[in-house]
Amino acid sequence: MIHLSFRRLDREIFLPYRDKIRIKDELVGPECEGVELLPARSREVDTSNQFHAWIIDSSTFRFPFGFTQCLVTEVALDGARQEPWPTNERPSDCLSEEEMRALLQQEKRKRP
């Protein structure tokens, strides 16, 4: 297991998800999974706008919780907000607006 500690150089609060996952990918690997723990108050460490993640150093390990498929988009639909990907970083499996609308329609049909 590898412990990663994330913080902005200017020590400000917000650190985007995409920055955290890019750092995880570069340091440990794109197929390695990890967790960012929200601890019990008795184990809390909150001192410097710093985030911690524990990554399993295995590309085949999967946690028995979480999502089971990839879903990546830069489309903002139905009030959701999403940042566009920089052109050179856009994943090949990034869903278009049409693909996202079709997926949402499929999900609506599944509901009782």
Score class of each variant (00 low, 15 high):
residue 104 L to V: 08
residue 105 Q to V: 10
residue 3 H to W: 11
residue 69 Q to V: 09
residue 109 R to L: 15
residue 28 V to E: 00
residue 64 P to N: 05
residue 26 E to L: 11
residue 48 S to C: 09
residue 107 E to M: 06
residue 44 E to D: 12
residue 29 G to I: 11
residue 19 D to P: 08
residue 60 T to E: 10
residue 73 T to P: 01
residue 55 I to K: 04
residue 78 D to Y: 02
residue 111 R to A: 04
residue 14 F to Q: 05
residue 100 M to E: 00
residue 38 L to V: 05
residue 86 P to W: 08
residue 94 C to F: 04
residue 34 G to N: 00
residue 23 I to K: 14
residue 84 P to Y: 07
residue 26 E to N: 09
residue 24 K to D: 00
residue 35 V to E: 02
residue 43 R to W: 02
residue 14 F to L: 15
residue 85 W to R: 10
residue 12 E to A: 10
residue 97 E to D: 02
residue 10 D to R: 13
residue 98 E to C: 13
residue 29 G to L: 15
residue 51 F to V: 05
residue 53 A to D: 02
residue 103 L to Y: 11
residue 87 T to P: 02
residue 45 V to M: 08
residue 47 T to M: 14
residue 84 P to I: 06
residue 53 A to P: 06
residue 72 V to I: 13
residue 28 V to N: 05
residue 8 R to M: 11
residue 14 F to Y: 14
residue 42 S to E: 15
residue 9 L to Q: 13
residue 32 C to S: 05
residue 84 P to D: 09
residue 7 R to A: 11
residue 58 S to F: 00
residue 65 F to N: 02
residue 83 E to N: 08
residue 96 S to V: 01
residue 5 S to W: 03
residue 7 R to Y: 01
residue 19 D to Q: 13
residue 53 A to I: 05
residue 94 C to D: 04
residue 24 K to Y: 04
residue 25 D to G: 10
residue 82 Q to V: 09
residue 54 W to S: 07
residue 62 R to H: 12
residue 109 R to F: 05
residue 19 D to F: 08
residue 106 Q to S: 15
residue 49 N to W: 07
residue 54 W to N: 09
residue 30 P to H: 03
residue 30 P to F: 01
residue 81 R to K: 14
residue 2 I to L: 12
residue 37 L to T: 07
residue 38 L to A: 03
residue 28 V to H: 10
residue 65 F to T: 06
residue 45 V to S: 15
residue 35 V to Q: 07
residue 80 A to P: 00
residue 30 P to N: 04
